[in-house]
Amino acid sequence: MFKRIWGWIQRFSSPKHFYSISGKMIPWFAISAIFLGVYGLYMGLFVAPTDYQQGESYRIIFIHVPAAWMSMFIYVVMAVSAGIGLIWQIKLADMIAAASAPIGAWFTFIALVTGSLWGKPMWGAYWVWDARLTSELILLFLYFGYMALQSSIEDQRTADKASGLLAIVGVVNIPIIHYSVQWWNTLHQGATVSKLDKPSMHVDMLIPLLVMAIAAKLFYAAIVLVRARNQVLYRERNRQWVRELVEKL
């Protein structure tokens, strides 16, 4: 039974099989991401009510919060894939991890920049060194470290091992980011949605926010597949099936 599952995993995770399946999935993810993204942005920016305290400027939340969630979500995906690549030596897992890093770094960057632009009018400062902001900045540096290790080590297997270990080590930062607002006094406010309690947000604001969060996930799914396919072609460039594929073009 175990052997059969193992065989199935190996067959499914073969780069060639992945390449053909992912090609069919990308358009679906991309189209639904665009559809939900446009709908969510319209609902968030034009339909959702004004906030009682922050007025219109709270609307940056519809970009800031999904980006911040994605920055952590993608990191976990990256670390888990790197772990799978490290332990079971499934090449595809390493490729997914490598493909995820720049996307995660961009979401982290967007979360930091939108947060900063939000901080100035609300708090009175673009940046403060509180635990939430600092740990999110460390997340950006972890992504950079992963990418630097990937591109500076010539041998691909060594690069995957080194960067994968960094990704796994850095995963301790994820609970720190999430709980920072609870464990320490921070200028950043506590959790609105991602807590066990009922969300502290009016439903007309909450729905566009969740729509944007789903759109961001679908966007990531589409982009990570595109990038992972590039990884497959590049890393398998000397294989027969890739050569045949290229010749057909």
């Binding site: 004004t50 009682y52 009175g124 009016h202 604001m205």
Partner: peptide
């Protein structure tokens, strides 16, 4: 020499707040 405002985690329309 510096005062920053902290806002809470609640978001709602003014009518609801009232």
């Amino acid at each position: 020499d510096e005062v920053l405002a902290k806002h809470d985690e609640n978001y709602m329309p003014p009518e609801v707040a009232d």
